[in-house]
Amino acid sequence: MAHAVEIKDLHKSFGDLEVLKGIDFTVDQGQVVCIIGPSGSGKSTLLRCVNLLEQPSKGTVRVGGVELTDPDVDIDAARRRLGMVFQSFNLFPHMSVLQNVMISQRRVLKRGKGDAERIARDNLEKVGVADKCDAFPPQLSGGQQQRVAIARALAMDPDLMLFDEPTSALDPELVGDVLSVMRKLARDGMTMLVVTHEMSFAREVADRVVFMDGGVVVEEGPPEQVIGAPRHERTRTFLRRVLDPTHSDDDVSGAGETSAQAR
């Protein structure tokens, strides 16, 4: 069976700046893969290459057996199978919540109004914002907006969901709502590729964690290995900084591990 996502020798440069320097990895059907790493490591760019929001400079991206990097591929058709959730939500501010979730069902999948509305309401229910159908995005909290964005992606019945730091723009007390929706999705068997800084989420939900730094995959494996017992010094340094920012300069190699367990 084809991998859900298969990335081979992926390179991406912006002008002279090489952001991705040859990435290889795969995601299998039903897997949750979390990508972690310092900012500027290329993890968001990698995610955006998976649905071709960024055109890779070199290499191939296959999703569900279809090569997206093939210039002749119908990219709009391919993207229908991929849901994307952005850090900044990117809801359409001129439409109500319900319209946000219906618009591409209607215009892209050509679903009838009744069907589209029913599916929209089901998905909004699933993410816990069913009572906000008639509100406009600017009236919602960040957490609510992000959950609507997830519902909007789910309404397209994607095979794969991409999350680009979905909780980074949220107030701390709202992060939990979004993560619990994502946890539920994972439990229901959705294939997910998640760029995140939420280590406890990665630890609990991910089947595999990929640590990136400087445009390459430094180490990958099950979360208890990559987060719990990292083999590379760079991974250890990063985790120490993320998990215990106040003591990031302390030269204790085991600090990351202990505080990760403390969480």
């Binding site: 709009d76 229908r80 991929l82 952005f86 990117n90 397209m156």
Partner: peptide
């Protein structure tokens, strides 16, 4: 980007 990600041309 959001619109394109939803499959719109």
């Amino acid at each position: 980007e959001a619109a394109r990600s939803l499959g719109m041309s």
